[in-house]
Computed example of a mutant assay.
Amino acid sequence: MATDGKPAPKKIDRRSSRWNEHRAQRREELLNLTHEAVRRYGASVSMDQIAEVAQTSKSIIYRYFADKTGLQNALGERMLGEILARFDTVVMKDVPVETVLTQIIHLLVEYADSEPGLYIFARVPELHGEFGGAPMINYDFLVEQYIVGLGKYDDVQRLRGFRAYTRGFSMGVATFISGTIDSWLAAREAIARAESGEDISISEAKYELGLQTAEQLANSLTATIIPAIGVMLETSLSHLLKAQDCMSEYDQDKLPPYVQRA
């Protein structure tokens, strides 16, 4: 208590502050070294190899990341942040949803082309929706914007199961994009191995896919998925309107306290 009767100001625990800064700095260093290990050993890099490059032990790495998946997720969050920083997500509502999705596809393909090992290791395209407050590709929002464009949003937004429907559909979009890019990277690797003299054979379809440049793949993905989303949404929403007896019923005006209202 201060002599003037006022409470004494709280002391700042500088040791705790310094430790937190050190921990954050060391965590970033380990992410950088993991990136280097992926470049050296490829996407299948082991924790032993990561520890070797970091010149430390696995037990030390696990002080900062719970397991390998935690390390992959942390690196993926950082990589996705770099990808999304290349375009202004703030203006997403002010441009056509097709334009935003086209940008996302091109950025993901470009990143996969420049950092194929890291792209696969960090599972960047799987980071969508809610994920620990990290910057995400909000496919849910994009799907809902498509529905707005179809003029059906007011009709279906309060239907039972609508949120589950948009989440399922958006995850399907994300999976289609990531699956296509993964197949392209695998095809390119197979062609490189075959041309280096390895005794393997690949299908003509895989060969054709692997020959595509990043620009060609992004353009073909865009040309395929953007019109398909509109057609599939329009058809499936019509069925959703007729299938209310298949949905779980609940009062949207009386949600439990643990549910965040959309």
Results as ranks from 00 to 15, higher is better:
G210E: 04
N32C: 05
L127R: 15
E198A: 04
P9E: 09
D88P: 09
G210C: 05
F87V: 01
E144M: 12
D113P: 04
Q252F: 08
V53R: 11
T102W: 07
A24V: 06
Q55I: 01
L101C: 03
T222C: 09
I181F: 06
L30N: 11
E77T: 05
R78I: 00
S248R: 12
S248E: 13
I177D: 05
Y139L: 11
G179Q: 03
F121S: 01
G132M: 06
V156Q: 12
V45A: 13
T166R: 07
G210A: 06
Q55H: 15
P9I: 01
E36K: 15
A24G: 03
A223P: 06
Y207M: 11
G76F: 02
S220G: 03
N219T: 07
E249A: 12
K152V: 02
M136E: 14
E215N: 13
S248I: 08
K6Y: 11
V148A: 03
I104K: 09
T175P: 00
K254P: 00
N20F: 09
G179N: 05
L108V: 00
L237S: 07
T213H: 07
P9A: 10
V38K: 09
T180I: 02
W19T: 08
M247W: 06
D4F: 05
E21D: 10
A24P: 03
D245R: 14
Q145I: 00
S201E: 13
A243C: 07
A164F: 08
R18I: 02
H239N: 11
E208A: 12
E82I: 02
G172M: 04
D94Y: 12
P116T: 02
S236M: 08
Y258H: 12
